[in-house]
Design a protein around this nucleic acid. Sequence first.
DNA 1: GCCAACGTTGGC
DNA 2: GCCAACGTTGGC
Length: 152
Amino acid sequence: MHWLMKSEPTECSIDDLASAPAQTVPWVGVRNYQARNFMRDEMRVGDGVLFYHSSCAEPGVAGLAEVVRPAYPDATQFDPHSPYFDPKSSPAAPRWVHVDVKLVRKTRLLALSEMRSTPALASMQLLKRGNRLSITPVSAAEWRAVLALLGP
DNA sequence: GCCAACGTTGGC
DNA sequence: GCCAACGTTGGC
């Protein structure tokens, strides 16, 4: 399958991903059940990821990545000093899990505005009104259309 | 900074 | 289980 994953560049940008050890980051901090369930139940190693910059001056797809580790417990939920701390979770019954994501390649920025004006992408969940979900599935056709826009 | 959209919380 | 209040997301 294919996915779109949002990241605020001030938290983790495509360049941060590129300079991370093994160009891989743990996708910690997701605190939404739908997004968690996608990672826990549906993501497989090798799945393609559109790395999307959100909450910034130029929102859009900034690169391609892939899932390299299946879901496992998010350590930040147990850390009282973390902004992602969840007092209702416990190591015995972890509530939040996440995958690891590895860079495939940085791309040109495919701006949200360009995505909106591309008919082949009109079905993307990202573009639906009121969408806030930080992880959304991308269909095979949408994936191909994005790759075509991004070029080699 | 605004605000629409949506998820979560908690009283009842 | 309902639903109002509140908090968050995220583009603009």
